[in-house]
Design a protein around this nucleic acid. Sequence first.
DNA 1: GGCCATTGATACGGATTCCGTATTGATCGA
DNA 2: TCGATCAATACGGAATCCGTATCAATGGCC
Lengths: 294, 294
Amino acid sequence: MAIDFRQLRYFVTLADTLHFGRAAALLHISQPPLSRQIAALEEELGVTLFKRSSRQVELTVAGRHFHEQAVRIIEALDGAVRSTQATERGERGVLRIGFTMSAAWSVLPPLIKAYGDGAPDVDVQLNEVLPRELNDVLMSGSVDVGIAFPWQRPAGLEYLAIHAEPLCAVLPANHRLARKTEVAVADLAGEPFITFPAATAPALHELVIGCCRENGFEPRIRLETHLQQTIVNLVAEGLGVSLVPWSMSKMQLPGAVFRAVSVTRMVEQGVIWAAGNDNPCLPRFLACARAFGR
Amino acid sequence: MAIDFRQLRYFVTLADTLHFGRAAALLHISQPPLSRQIAALEEELGVTLFKRSSRQVELTVAGRHFHEQAVRIIEALDGAVRSTQATERGERGVLRIGFTMSAAWSVLPPLIKAYGDGAPDVDVQLNEVLPRELNDVLMSGSVDVGIAFPWQRPAGLEYLAIHAEPLCAVLPANHRLARKTEVAVADLAGEPFITFPAATAPALHELVIGCCRENGFEPRIRLETHLQQTIVNLVAEGLGVSLVPWSMSKMQLPGAVFRAVSVTRMVEQGVIWAAGNDNPCLPRFLACARAFGR
DNA sequence: GGCCATTGATACGGATTCCGTATTGATCGA
DNA sequence: TCGATCAATACGGAATCCGTATCAATGGCC
């Protein structure tokens, strides 16, 4: 009562050979089943596909048209099987990455490149998120993996550190400390600080404040802004100083200079993902991140 | 061992309902066969399509992808069945028409229009052919039907008259006979005639020559050219006179005038086709031509 | 012109597949 | 803890399908 893929394969082979016996041999069946299946196919379609004499077989006009369609459909099934298998292996599909702006300056580009080289058919979607939003978008499943500073996370989120870098001081170019190649944190006491709000990126905020406290002073916070670039911009305008991850020094800006500081605490970044996330692309990405961490 | 359309339909229904019992009801089968067919499909694919607990079913990522593909494939089969049936009914496909230039001025346009209105999905391919080539292209199958003057045809070609029109005289505008509204053929005796070569369109050639002979003179053929339009052009240049089918008078050309002539013999046109031609579009076209003839 | 080889259709028996009923096992909610 | 729900499994009967054997028709060859 229903058309079968087997009938399509039989039909295509017969249409290619135009000979029941040879087609049956190619299909590794005997000739009578082939005759029956073709007859059944014509019956179901209500269309004569072959003009048969007892001596030769040829396609009708409708048969030629159905042949094209059948080949397309068989190829479509073949492709569907293959792409579905590739999907399960994580070799194709979509991987949505939520990254914080600071990751964009350090680990994100090389990590994406390394992953993309190994999984060229995966559509990597990059979404910038605020650090405080990361937990939510991971738990709701609207992104598959986040790249950010470590941060307190609810049960169900996993974390893997992949990168650590020191802080550096960013100073106005004409600042008195800009002449030194390395700055002691204590020297920054009393300077107006530009930081990001604790609510936006709590981990990094704590790190900067903690550094100052370890060196005996409470930073005087003059401005808060939630983008690292903006911090550097404001420093370049002479509005204050800041401590930022070393990778920010890639930002070449007249008016701002970056200087090493005497602190041992590092800014760590890592990948975060939901333990229950079943995106098949994720394991490969995590393997990539793990390799990147070493 | 092979994926079945039934499995695709079962899979799509289950993916839509995410409930074995309800999907089975929609498919008018009981639940166990559905479970088995889905399991068999997953087995053949080597891919887990559903994440099952004993309480709920949901698609995996690969399952979602396969769902899209399966829907596409089922629709493709459905479309293939329909279009193949339409092809056999002659409602879609290709109809190649070989027409002679003289038909283009008379019967071809309204006939094509009438046919096209009734069979809008048929791709009508129009090929101009020389009258003497028509038999060959019909017998070889490179066109399905010809529109031309009747002409001696080999066994296997059928002919149906659909149109007849009188001859008319075409004269230079400043010709002495141009002042009359009707011309007697005998008046053209001695005039330089422009005709087409006998080899190109034997039937029409014979008709024109025959007309003259019936009226007691042998036409003095000054020029021969195988396009009717060229004949009219040459007449307009004052190089001679001719007898052409009345439909050529649609050709408005300063310098040439068309005049009725006192002959009863008509120029007939009809459709010609190979008896063995199995293009399903042909019967409908011939029915159209038959209706056109009345 | 008659004989034989070729080719597709048909007949029939055996094996496989597949469906439906009944049942099990597992999980969630009360 | 018990019952309800839901998917998986067991099993028997029916339908399908394949292969061997055979038939019918056609074309080539002597």
